[in-house]
C-alpha cells in the first residue's frame, strides 16, 4: 500500500486529521463495490492538502468520511482529536457544526436568505445571538470582498460571488478544518483563482487545516501537498511546482 508518507510519527500524533487503513464499500443488494481500500492520511493544522484523482477514485467518499457525513467500514479516523468511529450521529453533527467548515461545488446557499444571512446559518445552528452572527458575517463579507453584497440574495450574485459567500459561510463558525469539494468546478478561470486565493489566504492566516477535492490541475499551485487517489487508494503524493504560476485560464471541470 502506498500511503501518505509525508508525516513522521510525531506529526501524526498532533495531526488535525488522521486516517489509518480505512476501507469503505457501497452495497447494492448482494453486490458490494469497494470505494476506499486502505487509505492512510494525515493533515496538520495550517496545512492545505488537495485530493486529486479520476472520477470514481474515492475522493468524495474520503471527503465525506473526513467530514463525519459518512462512516468508514474499517480503520481509524481521528478528526480534531476525536475518534469519529465511536461517535454517534448526534455527536458527529455537533463536530461538523462546531469544528468543520464545508465548501461545496454547487455552493448550496439557501436561496431565501441574503448573503449575510447565509453566512449566519452555521452560527444560528450554534445558537449564537443574531446580532453577533450578523457582525461576524459582515467581517467575513469584507474579507471575501463582498461587503456591498450583504443584502443580496444568491439569485442576484454571480457564481464566483456565490462561492465566496459559501467560503465565508464555511469560515463563519471559526472551524479548525475546512473541507472543500471541487470548489472551482462551477466557476470560470478567473473566479476559480480568486476563490482559491481567498481560501488559501484565509486558512493560512488563521492556521486552519484544509482539504480540497479537485480535478482542476490549474489550482494545484495552492496546495501544500497533493494526494493522488486511484481505485480507492492514495497512489502518490506530490508537491506543486513552486516555479509554476497559477494558471490564468483555469477552468472548472468535473469528470
Amino acid at each position: 500500500m502506498i500511503a501518505d508518507k509525508e508525516f513522521n510519527a510525531m506529526d501524526r500524533e498532533h495531526a488535525a486529521v488522521r486516517v489509518e487503513r480505512i476501507h469503505k464499500a457501497y452495497h447494492n443488494g448482494t453486490t458490494s463495490t469497494p470505494v476506499l481500500t486502505g487509505v492512510d492520511l494525515a493533515v496538520r493544522q495550517g496545512e492545505c492538502v488537495f485530493l486529486a484523482g479520476p472520477s470514481g477514485s474515492g475522493k468524495t467518499t474520503l471527503l465525506s468520511i473526513l467530514g463525519c457525513i459518512l462512516s468508514a467500514d474499517q480503520g481509524e479516523v481521528r478528526i480534531l482529536d476525536q475518534d469519529v468511529i465511536t461517535l454517534n450521529e448526534r455527536r458527529r453533527a455537533a463536530l461538523r457544526r462546531n469544528r468543520i467548515g464545508f465548501v461545496f461545488q454547487r455552493f448550496h446557499l439557501i436561496r431565501g436568505l441574503t448573503a449575510a444571512e447565509n453566512i449566519c446559518v452555521p452560527l444560528t445552528l450554534r445558537k449564537v445571538s443574531p446580532r453577533t452572527a450578523r457582525q461576524r458575517a459582515e467581517v467575513l463579507l469584507e474579507a471575501v470582498g463582498l461587503a456591498d453584497k450583504a443584502n443580496s440574495h444568491p439569485g442576484n450574485l454571480s457564481a464566483g460571488q456565490c462561492q465566496r459567500v459559501a467560503l465565508a459561510r464555511a469560515l463563519a463558525g471559526d472551524p479548525d478544518l475546512i473541507l472543500a469539494d471541487e470548489p472551482t468546478a462551477s466557476l470560470d478561470g478567473t473566479n476559480g483563482q480568486e476563490v482559491m486565493t481567498l481560501l488559501r489566504q484565509l486558512t493560512t492566516e488563521q492556521g486552519k487545516a484544509a482539504i480540497v477535492v479537485t480535478h482542476d490541475h490549474r489550482i494545484f499551485s495552492f496546495a501544500d501537498r497533493i494526494l493522488h487517489l486511484e481505485n480507492g487508494r492514495i497512489v502518490r503524493t506530490t508537491k506543486p511546482d513552486p516555479q509554476a504560476p497559477p494558471s490564468e485560464s483555469a477552468t472548472g471541470s468535473k469528470g
Partner: peptide, 12 residues
Amino acid sequence: GEFGTLKAIGAT
C-alpha cells in the same frame, strides 16, 4: 438540497 446542506453543516 437546502435541508441536505443544513444537515451536512451540522443541523440536528
